[in-house]
Design a protein around this nucleic acid. Structure first.
Lengths: 364, 364
DNA sequence: TTGTAAGCGTTATCAA
DNA sequence: TTGATAACGCTTACAA
């Protein structure tokens, strides 16, 4: 497994200063052991069939004997192309984006691509910073979350796209509403305004006329804000009174509890249904309602977003919006692969979601 | 932002075949704009103070004008050293390991290192595969989870360590128990046998004499198995009868529910306390107990592991083991940085955990 | 089927 | 303070 440095070649003039590697086994080393040149080993690695059977066997032995590990830096630099897809997601601790990452990873890995993931913590500033860092790897394609970016990031993305690097925005899909600017990049996700409207419609349909939306406490969770705005518009349009609250910072379950407390303390009198920016908030509220002896849905209906696995476990089970979390990743990866290998330009896709009506919003 | 290819040099003989890059801006391009050579720009990038003020200003302009993004492949290849730390974790969707990743990332990024993460899905086979792939980046250090690895992976890790690449095993710490082989690599985590014993002690102390351990349904979650074995040993040693069950596959909350069903259906008569491999299982059981009208802890005490944020929200609140999830990441990163920059060999650390006793195991 | 030469974009070394 | 030159380990293009 170790590498024997051959004595210096006899005839060659001694180089000014050899700065030989880190003792790692190189293609050269393998080639020497196999009695061929490095290019032959390189070829064997790419496609064993192109070298003679006997040579292949010797190379195989040499490979095993030396424990060769190809140097990706060198390979990528030499080939000029990269098999790296860089993805920027708000976070990974949240199962939402982790599943998207899994989807990307599953499809890309099967195709021999490397996935480089960075998380932005829902900060556009950090996104730009991370993007700059990722760009240093000269990725073959870029995946970012949502359509809002810092201006510097926007410029970098536009430059990349101009240089024929596919760029996909995930977790959003603008559609073709009036007043919406045309999308700059391919989008794979769903329309948050539609979801917001559907959430409002669901509550109105159950007869609620005083409703609230509890927005994410994360300032830069623009998609949550957008759902909230659409929810409020639609509810008002349907003749309801709407209150919009913002979740306090800190543990999200606790935040949900607190908000429910606020609502229950008659600070928001008459509210009979609450929609939340995410299921964690809604679960916190659901548990707090139980603690306070508040009947759900009889006295207060609760509606979540994201359909986390805990939600359907609680009693009453939480109504929520089921999202194509994993599918967004898979679809994006497939799109990217088509673009990279077949030159087929990536096209925006609206992925389906459904509002799962459960007990927490069941009409009386 | 775009790059102007200068006309070919006048005197030089034309190269056989130019294979100029992908249109990306290089150090060379910046240098031309600034009227210096590439090495000067390189120096400026490393430390702006080493070039003359006037030169620095010109370079700064050129940098901005060209939108230069350094090529990491080339830089790493040339310098021979890498600022990459590669980490292999069982998964990222689970908040447990995501927090460790966050800890690693936070500390490493501040120090200018890159974190490359791959997930193994709790499969040693996948771990070996992923390790091989990561090694291609020639990382400066390696982080793996636990002390069990496929034999091939073990060999790769040993080789890396022999080549002075620090290797740290996280989420485990063997300590110096009898019958335990000495650790091969630095370990940063905690002792799962100790935790298993503490869980047993906690239940025995509350007076339970018939207890059960619900092991993880994930076959290769060796740490959970180890806690279970230690739990059983300790409980038996304390004079209790022990049943060990294994969670069925599928949704973890559902698995917890099912297992509780099994226990409640008098299939395991007399069991008064159950410890679980993780909080999700325990939460599922807690919710199922409520559904069945089984009093917790009066009729059945439940004890989790991991202290997920939902656990303390349920009623009764779940007793659980609080883990240094984030700290494992930070401490590992710090250790690695010391090893890489100061040459200080990484040393194993047992990080503290605590058993948070809540209502679900409160003695009558 | 295999080899030679050149080059990928950067940094280390030495010289000026 | 700046530059020339040679690597780093691999792949492309072309020749044999």
């Amino acid at each position: 497994m170790s590498k024997s440095n051959p004595p210096p070649a006899d005839a060659a003039p001694p180089p000014r200063q050899a700065r030989r590697g880190h003792g790692r086994v190189t293609l050269q080393d393998v080639a020497e052991v196999a009695g061929v040149t490095s290019i032959t080993v390189s070829r064997y690695l790419r496609d064993p069939a192109v070298v003679a059977a006997a040579t292949a066997a010797r190379i195989r032995d040499a490979l095993a004997q030396t424990g060769y590990v190809p140097n990706k830096q060198a390979g990528l630099l030499a080939s000029g192309r990269s098999n790296i897809v860089a993805a920027l997601l708000p976070n990974l601790s949240n199962s939402i984006f982790a599943e998207t990452a899994q989807g990307l990873s599953d499809v890309l890995q099967a195709a021999g691509y490397e996935l480089l993931i960075a998380s932005t913590g829902y900060s556009l500033e950090r996104e730009e910073h991370q993007l700059r860092a990722l760009l240093g790897w000269h990725p073959a394609a870029l995946v970012v979350t949502g359509r809002r970016h810092a201006s510097g990031a926007l410029q970098l993305l536009a430059d990349a796209q101009a240089a024929a690097t596919p760029v996909i925005e995930v977790w959003d899909h603008q559609g073709s509403e009036r007043g919406q600017r045309r999308a700059r990049f391919t989008q794979i996700g769903f329309n948050h305004r539609e979801v917001g409207r559907a959430m409002a419609a669901h509550l109105l349909q159950a007869g609620h006329r005083r409703v609230a939306y509890v927005d994410s406490g994360v300032a830069e969770d623009y998609r949550a804000h957008e759902r909230g705005a659409a929810f409020a518009d639609a509810a008002r349009g349907g003749g309801a009174q709407v209150t919009v609250l913002t979740a306090p910072p800190g543990d999200v379950f606790e935040a949900g509890r607190q908000v429910l407390g606020e609502i229950a303390r008659a600070a928001k009198p008459g509210v009979t249904a609450v929609a939340f920016a995410n299921d964690h908030l809604a679960c916190g509220a659901l548990l707090e309602a139980a603690r306070r002896g508040l009947q759900v849905p009889a006295q207060l209906a609760l509606l979540g977003f994201g359909d986390f696995s805990i939600s359907r476990q609680l009693s009453p089970a939480l109504s929520s919006v089921q999202l194509p979390r994993y599918e967004i990743g898979c679809e994006t990866a497939r799109s990217l692969l088509d673009a990279l290998r077949l030159g087929k330009p990536a096209v925006s896709v609206a992925l389906p979601w459904t509002l799962a009506a459960r007990e927490s919003t069941a009409p009386a």
